[in-house]
Design a protein around this nucleic acid. Structure first.
Lengths: 224, 224
DNA sequence: TAGCAGTTTCGTACAAAGTACGATACGGTC
DNA sequence: GACCGTATCGTACTTTGTACGAAACTGCTA
């Protein structure tokens, strides 16, 4: 699946519109400028069309939001119910995290979208299938499913909310935060920052594997 | 002219405005009608004031959003670094989940707010303090912290996204979803639904403890 | 008491955004 | 060409955030 944002002045396409083209352009705009940059007008411009033309292909802005969330889900690798369940779930979790990193805005939308699209449902179906194939009971599948997804989305949520990204970008941001507040108000936060985050060129992204492995290990124990 | 009435069933207050009163009213509106209902005008009306009056107390809508996220954090019970760390963290996680249930809209905002307020920082400080007091190393504290929070927020995120709430409300929603899509497209989802969710008057909320206990147990093992 | 200097509230007005409504252009079939 | 479903668009109305400056209010001093 490929998508490219037109970088400059030239609108992207001039062919016929379609629901798919509209949603792809919407994703591109949100990626480039945040969900706030996605307006019917910017969308139309990106498509080389006029605002009202968009409405022929989608019911309204709400439908666009539902649509692009489903597009995001469609980009996540599905686990295969056949293989080793732990590595399959690890792969799909890693994929989910990467996808949600590309499309930060998606996490914020999940909370408000209550009508899942086909890709979303297919995705959930595949995860459940993998757990069932691994031998989990219905009850344990429900437990494991909620647990793994909570962790994955929650991690992505936190990652999206971080004002920095990657190692070595932590310090300046932390400095500016600390300057704002009375010294000594958050001693343990400061201890973590100075004693660990700064010292080791910390990358929050690395935390993901630790938690996921812990969870999968614990679930694995409950299997036997 | 305006009289300060006793009934108080209409606009909420008539006293002087303040940042705090503005933020409280904003939270109330978002709780009642979703974040979309929160406009400067609705806010002013709730406060018994005119739109532009609000701007004296907050810099703009973005500042309001930052502010109400911090209000939400301020409502979460802090763990005490002294006591039994597992029950302390369980208590604060349960509190966080409840708070985020009261203020569903907050989760969606977290993704976009990158300037934490004082309550948010104090909250993080307390969690870190509790982990450190429990004997975790700096490194393990970072791991545990990311893990627990990811789970907690992720769970709340999923809960907020569910189109139903509580037991016995699952079925009708699931029905309408299933009707929309070709039969047999999501066999495992259907199996879970018919074989488990429907059968046991399933309440997603109960999943929370399972995952949290699993995580705390696993972390506990790593202590000794 | 009158006057004055903050402090707080508000009236007016404009730009950006979603979209209802109906007209227009297009593309194929008879 | 006449006709018809599909796709695009022009116009215009409503809702929202907020800039700008005036008005009202508060407490204080002369």
């Amino acid at each position: 699946m490929e998508r490219s944002v037109s970088t400059g002045d030239t609108p992207r396409g001039r062919q016929r519109l379609s629901r798919e083209r509209v949603l792809d352009a919407a994703v591109g705009i949100a990626d480039a400028g945040g969900i706030g940059a996605l307006t019917i007008r910017s969308l139309a411009q990106e498509l080389g069309a006029k605002p009202m033309s968009v409405y022929y292909h989608v019911a309204g802005k709400e439908a666009i939001l539902d649509g692009i969330v489903d597009v995001v889900f469609s980009e996540i690798d599905l686990p295969s119910p056949g293989g080793d369940w732990r590595s399959e779930l690890r792969r799909r979790a890693a994929s989910a995290r990467q996808v949600l990193r590309r499309h930060r805005w998606a996490i914020g939308l999940m909370e408000s979208r209550t009508t899942p699209g086909p890709a979303t449902l297919r995705h959930h179906d595949a995860v459940i299938a993998t757990l069932r194939a691994a031998g989990f009971s219905l009850e344990m599948t429900a437990h494991a499913y909620a647990l793994i997804d909570s962790y994955t989305y929650g991690f992505a949520l936190q990652e999206a909310g971080l004002p920095f990204e990657g190692p070595d970008t932590v310090a300046p941001v932390a400095d500016s935060i600390m300057e704002q507040f009375p010294a000594g108000d958050y001693p343990h936060l400061v201890e973590m920052a100075t004693g660990y985050y700064f010292k080791t060129s910390y990358d929050f992204a690395d935390e993901f594997d630790f938690g996921l492995n812990l969870i999968l290990d614990a679930l694995s124990n409950s299997l036997s």
